[in-house]
Amino acid sequence: NKEHILAQKEVLTPIEYEHYVKHLFDIGEITKELYIELSS
């Protein structure tokens, strides 16, 4: 869920976080809207 993803932002580097969010989007775990929101 969104809270879990945002928690990852605390422990990952910005680049790792971007890759993580992109991966979730690629596998269909999150919607495009959520992907855009989380990567901003």
Rank of each mutant, 00 (worst) to 15 (best):
N1T: 10
N1A: 03
N1I: 15
N1E: 08
N1W: 12
N1S: 14
K2E: 05
K2Q: 13
K2M: 14
K2C: 03
K2Y: 09
K2H: 03
E3T: 08
E3K: 07
E3A: 15
E3D: 15
E3G: 02
E3F: 11
H4K: 07
H4N: 14
I5M: 06
I5V: 09
I5R: 00
I5N: 01
I5P: 02
I5D: 01
I5E: 01
L6P: 02
L6M: 14
L6G: 05
L6S: 07
L6K: 08
L6W: 05
A7Q: 11
A7K: 03
A7G: 14
A7T: 08
A7S: 06
A7E: 15
A7I: 06
A7C: 04
A7L: 05
A7Y: 03
A7V: 07
Q8R: 04
Q8A: 09
Q8V: 15
Q8F: 13
Q8E: 08
Q8M: 11
Q8D: 02
Q8P: 00
K9Q: 11
K9C: 05
K9P: 02
K9D: 01
K9L: 13
K9I: 08
K9A: 10
E10T: 04
E10H: 08
E10Y: 08
E10I: 06
E10W: 07
E10P: 10
L12E: 01
L12V: 04
L12Q: 05
L12S: 04
L12H: 03
L12P: 01
L12M: 15
T13E: 12
T13S: 09
T13H: 10
T13I: 04
T13D: 12
T13L: 11
T13F: 05
T13C: 02
T13M: 05
P14V: 06
P14A: 13
P14H: 08
P14S: 09
P14E: 14
P14D: 07
P14T: 11
P14G: 09
I15F: 13
I15A: 14
I15Y: 06
I15L: 12
I15N: 13
I15D: 14
I15R: 07
E16F: 04
E16N: 06
E16K: 07
E16A: 13
E16Q: 10
Y17T: 00
Y17A: 02
Y17S: 00
Y17K: 00
Y17F: 13
E18V: 10
E18I: 13
E18G: 10
E18T: 11
E18Y: 10
E18R: 07
E18W: 09
E18L: 14
H19Y: 07
H19C: 04
H19A: 11
H19F: 15
H19D: 05
H19R: 13
H19T: 14
H19L: 14
Y20E: 01
Y20M: 07
Y20W: 14
Y20V: 01
Y20A: 02
V21G: 00
V21M: 07
V21Q: 00
K22D: 11
K22E: 13
K22T: 09
H23T: 12
H23P: 00
H23A: 11
H23M: 08
H23K: 12
H23Y: 15
L24K: 06
L24Q: 08
L24V: 04
L24R: 02
L24P: 00
L24H: 02
L24M: 08
L24I: 04
L24A: 04
F25D: 01
F25L: 12
F25W: 13
F25C: 03
D26F: 03
D26T: 10
D26I: 10
I27D: 13
I27T: 14
I27A: 15
I27Q: 14
I27E: 09
G28I: 01
G28T: 01
G28E: 03
G28C: 03
G28F: 04
G28W: 03
G28N: 08
G28S: 06
G28K: 03
E29P: 00
E29L: 10
E29S: 07
E29Y: 14
E29I: 14
I30S: 01
I30K: 00
I30P: 00
I30E: 00
T31A: 09
T31P: 11
T31G: 15
T31Q: 05
T31Y: 05
T31W: 04
T31V: 06
T31F: 04
T31R: 03
T31H: 07
T31E: 10
T31L: 07
T31S: 04
K32Q: 11
K32W: 13
K32A: 12
K32S: 14
E33G: 07
E33Q: 07
E33R: 04
E33H: 05
E33P: 09
E33M: 08
E33T: 06
L34N: 07
L34H: 06
L34S: 08
Y35T: 01
Y35V: 03
I36K: 12
I36Y: 15
I36S: 14
I36E: 03
I36R: 11
I36F: 06
I36L: 12
E37F: 09
E37C: 03
E37S: 09
E37T: 10
E37D: 05
E37H: 12
E37A: 08
E37Y: 09
E37Q: 15
L38D: 00
L38A: 04
L38E: 02
L38K: 00
L38Y: 05
L38C: 03
L38Q: 02
L38G: 00
S39Q: 14
S39T: 13
S39I: 02
S39M: 07
S39W: 09
S39F: 13
S39Y: 09
S40T: 11
S40H: 13
S40M: 13
S40R: 08
S40D: 14
S40W: 12
S40P: 04
